[in-house]
């Protein structure tokens, strides 16, 4: 075996590198949604009337509630990091649990919203949808695609936080070594930030 030590070994613990890697990954996520925002921008520019008209079908109240739910979940996950930094593992676990519960709340509300649209036949291929103008179809398709992809991220983020709770229980994540929780938190905040833009662009066209 080698009888010398590399200070710069790739196998050493390096929290800064982990966080840097997570940020880089978030950049790719931003641009992934960025492509969709680009499509949205162009089609909204080309069909502003139709987009306005179609947006009346969306429920502003539900959208607002979901915005508040996600912001609050962002708060709880941020607080959980403060808690673990201060050595309060129990509180940290409770706060992550709360975050996951908010994530579920968000998904349940989303489920009711989507079912309402399904009842009105607004999903691509359904009756009402087929009779819409092309530009309105575009709006609803983008709505389902973008909120759907976002919903998928909510599910992944929630699962990730659940996994981190498991790691905290196993003492893999501790007040001395909590970068995994920080990264999980970063991912969760990204999910929130995407929604911060989705909300006005779909619900608040007036």
């Amino acid at each position: 075996m080698a009888n010398f030590v590399l200070a710069n070994s790739g196998h050493n613990r390096d929290d800064e590198a982990s966080k840097f890697g997570m940020w880089l990954f978030l950049f790719t996520e931003l641009l992934l949604f960025g492509g969709l925002f680009l499509v949205y921008t162009i089609y909204r520019y080309l069909n502003s009337e139709a987009f306005l008209h179609a947006s009346y079908e969306l429920d502003v109240i539900m959208g607002t509630i979901n915005t508040v739910v996600l912001l609050t979940s962002s708060l709880t996950v941020a607080l959980s990091i403060t808690a673990i930094q201060k050595g309060n593992v129990k509180l940290s676990l409770w706060l992550i649990t709360a975050t996951i519960l908010f994530a579920l709340t968000f998904l349940v509300i989303k489920y009711f919203e989507w079912s309402a649209k399904f009842e009105h036949g607004l999903f691509p291929g359904m009756d009402h949808y087929n009779h819409l103008e092309p530009a309105e179809k575009m709006f609803f398709f983008l709505y389902f695609f973008m909120t759907g992809l976002h919903g998928l991220h909510v599910v992944i983020g929630g699962a990730l936080l659940g996994y981190i709770m498991w790691d905290i229980k196993k003492k893999e994540v501790t007040p001395q070594n909590y970068v995994f929780l920080e990264n999980g938190g970063l991912y969760w905040h990204l999910v929130d930030i995407i929604w911060i833009f989705l909300f006005p662009l779909f619900y608040l066209i007036h």
């Binding site: 996520e29 291929g125 398709f141």
Partner: peptide
């Protein structure tokens, strides 16, 4: 790369759901 990723997903969605992006 993320831009091509999402673009290709749009092609898939267009083929599966028959929408006209």
């Amino acid at each position: 790369t993320p831009i091509i990723g999402i673009t290709l997903l749009m092609i898939v969605a267009e083929r599966v759901f028959g929408v006209g992006l």
